[in-house]
Structure formats: C-alpha cells, structure tokens
Design a protein around this nucleic acid. Structure first.
Lengths: 292, 292
DNA sequence: CTAATAGTGTCTTTAAGACACTATAGG
DNA sequence: CCTATAGTGTCTTAAAGACACTATTAG
C-alpha cells in the first residue's frame, strides 16, 4: 500500500521504528433511551480482564480499510441491540469525541472514538450479538450530576478553570448495579460527556423527538426534556413554547387514544417537523450555578 | 503487552488477521488567528504525494504509547508555529472531531483526530519545525460560505436533510493561492467544520478573547466577532451587551494609548473575565436562512 | 364528584436591536 | 473644522416565565 520516495517526509519522519507499535482504534457508543420516563444508557458487562465484571459502553474495533467511523459505530450499535437496518434508521447517531490517553487501556494504546445515540424505545437488548448481556441502565442512578469532564471542547494549554460544581440533576436512588456504578476504562468520563452533549443538544435542535415514536404528544415531548435535563418543566409554558418554534413539531390531525392514567382530555398528536435547529432555542432553566 | 485467555473475546473476536493491517492515527489542527482584522488559518504546503504541492492542515502521527491526543495536537501546533510552552499556554486548543473514512488517505486507513485552536497574533510561522513553509492563509478567500459538512454532530441513519445554503460569509477576493484553495485529503471539510465550531463557540463562551492579547478594547473584541462571523455588528449595542454579560470582561482601570487612525476618544482596556460561558449568550444575527 | 391533565390567556420582566446623541481626539 | 470612533440613553419588540383559568375525561 505504501509507495516510496517523497513520502519519506510524511510517513517515515513521523514513524520511527519504535512508534510502530500500532495504535488500535475503537468506537464506543453512548446510547440513550427513555424507559418509564427515565433516561437509560446501554451498557455491557465485561467478560474478561481488564475490568472484568464491570460495566462498559458497547463498542469494538474499527475494521481497518473496510469501514468509516460512522459505519463502525452504527454496526456496533446494531450488533449490541439486535437492531435491523430499518430500526437503526430511526436512531440518531452522532460523533461525540475521541479519547486517546496512552494508559486508558492497560493492554496497549487504544484510541476510542465515542458516539452518542438517541433511540426511541427499543425491545430489550439482551438478545443481541457477540456481547450477550447488553442492558439498559437507568442514568440517574449512575451519574448523579454528570459534569462534563474531558475530551471534547476542553481547553488544554489554558488555566481559567474553577472547581465550582453546580446543580444536582438526578435524584432517585434505585441503583441497578452498585450505586454510582463505575464503568471500565474511562467510560465514566465518556458517559458524562455524552450526557452533557445530550442535554445541550436538545436545547437548540429538535433531537428530543428522536427519543419518541413516529407520533407523540406534547406531554411525551416534555417528558423527554424532563428526563434528560432532570428538571420538572412547567407544562403550560412548555406547550406554548414548543408550538411557537417554527418547524419543531407539526400536527397530525389525530388525537391520542388514552389520556392520563386517571383521566383528563385526550392530547393531540404531533410528529417531528422539518427544522434542524430550534429558533429560538429551548434553554435549560437557570444553570447560573455551574456556569462560571 | 497482551495477555491470553479471556481477552480473546475482546481482542481476537474483533481482530481477525486481515484486519491487522493497522490503522494509523494522526492529529490535524485547524489553527485560527486574526491578522489585519481578517481571520487566518494555519496551513502547510505538502512536499510529496499524495496531494503534493497542495495546502493541508498542520498535523502528524500520534506517538503510540507516548502521548495523549491533546498532547499530540499541542506538540504539532508548537512544532508548526515555533511556539514555546509559554506562548502555547495562551492558545486555546480543543478537540474538534475525528475523520476516519478508509479512503481519505490513499496510502492506508488513517484516522485523523482534528483539533481547533484559537491563537492571538503570533510571529510568522515559517521559521517553525519539520514542515518548513507553514503559513497563515486568510480564511474568507478559502471558504466562501464554510458550511459545516461532516464528522462532528452529523446524524447517520436519518434523513431530514435539506440542501439550503444560507448567508455568504466571506467577501473580498485576494486569494493567496488559487481562489477557493482546495486542501489535501478531507481537510476542506475539517476546516469547514472548524470554522462552524468557532462561529458557534464564541456565541456562548468568552473564547473570542483567546484571539486577543492580555488586554484589549471592546472594539478589538468586536473585530474578532466580525471577522469570525463575517458580519458587521452594531458598535453601540455590542458594547453594551458585552459589558452586561457577567464575567465576560473585566476592566483594567487603564485606557488605550491610541485612538483610531484618524482620531477619536481613547478606548478603555479590559481583560478576560472569569466566566466560562456567556449568559445570556451573544447570538449571531439572524441565521434564519440556513437554519432549516 | 374528584382529581389530574390538555391547552389557553394574560401579565411581568428580561433581552435584543434600531436609532439618536454626546464626547473625544487626530488630521 | 471635519470626521471617525467611544460610549450612553431611549424606545420598540420578542421572548421567557409566573400564574390563573377552562375544558375534558377516568375512576
């Protein structure tokens, strides 16, 4: 595959023999979904060392020369959830960031490209592919505050950092594994970054709809925001706000079958609109605390 | 470095022999700065094939087992600009995204982790390290609109894309190389993504100050916004807005030495404040056009 | 009937932007 | 004196949030 001559300056200058211990490239996916009104993340139990028995994000090696990063992430997600191509089409998948500290995997230098996925409710994952035992873990139990911490958008040379640590986001207990479940490798950090990205992303994009089915009520949509942000929102104001943003949702003339569990009017049904960004944005309630 | 046994499931399952053609990992840096009121990007001329003679973003291979991605990016930037550690400390450097299509480099599968840098005015880069010939190219000449296009934050499975193509950003001609300079590899796309990130980032963070020296006037700061966004801003409103955002800038009691070129009052000097995000944000003037 | 929710009306406060105006200095 | 810029005042409009209220339906 390699020619000779001029490429020396490009390849060999940077590739001295002992660097030739290769770097492995993996993709890991922070897949989020809503179950019973709570945010869940897809996790797998590690079968062997290192970190045997601990939770980890689903992921795997990129197939050299055969697939792009996006394709690898989609493949891993499909394998882990048992999704077919059609179902995968309804999942939003975007790149989150890359993590490459040389000591993040004790075996060798592994660069992991993390992806973030928003999925509507899916069948239980366990049936999936290689890594039997993928499960949806409730997020609040894992990540009490979920401060973003590392790779994406972190200044490097610069000082100007304060330790302030603002509002608590998650509440309820009910840990499925041990509370504050530690993830293998640096996956705690990847998850925290993914959560922060998700929280920010639904502010200015209509992607909250990616957690829902084809049609949904405004209350369903509000439940997404409340679960992702971990804050209750004012129903009336939320309703008006959503309808006032052009292209966020569009009405299907339909109206939902069942009201609340104990009565109430039937809500109208909407589907995702054609906007790709929300203008004006739907900003989180005051984050003053963790803002500086 | 590798053990045996249980790791089979993790390593070997994904690592069949023919995949073992390694993937190379590089970092590439979109380094932006302001010169004569215009946005410039650091570029190098490629000495050999592929893409011999074309412009490319500065970058190089990550040293396996020796450095993190952040460190590799900082090292490459320092080598290319001839910056010492002190000067590097004044540069904002953050991860932009990763690019890994198998055919992006004709020689082999190379995953590039791109970084974005905001630098204050620096001495000319040419003196630098290995790749003699790094230069600051004016951005408007290269990237007339600079639509973001690929890796970061792009949905994969999903449709919902429109070809709309909004406001023109750059104007003036004066191409330094050929107009609409094509970059090697997929660096056009990386640059476009970096520009879009930069434009978005100065909306809700105080990072515009990273383009300036220790102290600056409000007009200096406005010049940054105008150059990055490619839009003239209303001086009076901008002034009031900047001072009203808590923690954006803080006054040094000083006042600048020289007014405009043809007179006027001396402007007060400010330095960067302690905020890490701007609340409320400084939003770009109506982007309605490219918004859906 | 009671209770909970869907959806709307209205008012206050904040912020953005248009515009006008004063003050300051160099040529 | 002329001109460009620094900085402030004021008004209009948009938007967010608090609060109140009506309508609808299950139990």
């Amino acid at each position: 595959m390699t020619g000779r001559g001029q490429e020396e300056r490009d390849f060999l200058a940077a590739y001295d023999p002992r660097d030739f211990a290769p770097i492995a490239v993996t993709v890991d996916v922070v897949a989020l979904t809503l179950r019973e009104g709570r945010l869940h993340v897809l996790a797998v139990r590690r079968g062997g060392p290192p970190f045997a028995g601990e939770w980890a994000l689903p992921g795997g090696f990129v197939r050299a020369g055969q697939e792009s990063l996006d394709e690898a992430a989609a493949r891993e997600l499909a394998e882990e959830t048992g999704l077919d191509a059609a179902a995968l089409g309804r999942v939003h998948l975007e790149q989150l960031g890359s993590y490459g500290r040389p000591d993040r995997d004790p075996r060798m230098h592994v660069v992991s490209v993390a992806y973030l996925a928003f999925a509507p409710r899916l069948p239980d994952a366990t049936a999936g592919g290689d890594a039997a035992g993928a499960e949806w873990l409730p997020v609040p139990a894992i990540s009490p505050a979920g401060q973003p911490s590392s790779a994406p958008s972190r200044p490097i040379g610069q000082g100007r950092r304060t330790g302030t640590h603002g509002g608590g986001t998650g509440r309820r207990p009910l840990p499925p594994g041990p509370a504050g479940t530690p993830f293998a490798f640096d996956h705690d950090r990847v998850l925290a970054d993914g959560l922060e990205r998700a929280r920010a992303k639904i502010e200015y994009t209509p992607l909250a709809t990616a957690f829902l089915g084809e049609t949904f009520t405004i209350s369903d949509l509000r439940a997404v925001y409340e679960a992702v942000w971990g804050t209750p929102l004012h129903a009336g104001n939320f309703h008006r706000k959503v309808l006032s943003v052009p292209g966020f949702v569009e009405s299907t003339g339909e109206t939902g079958t069942r009201p609340g569990s104990r009565g109430g009017p039937r809500a109208r049904l909407y589907r995702a609109g054609d906007a790709r960004r929300l203008h004006p944005a739907l900003l989180r309630p005051d984050r003053e605390a963790d803002v500086r």
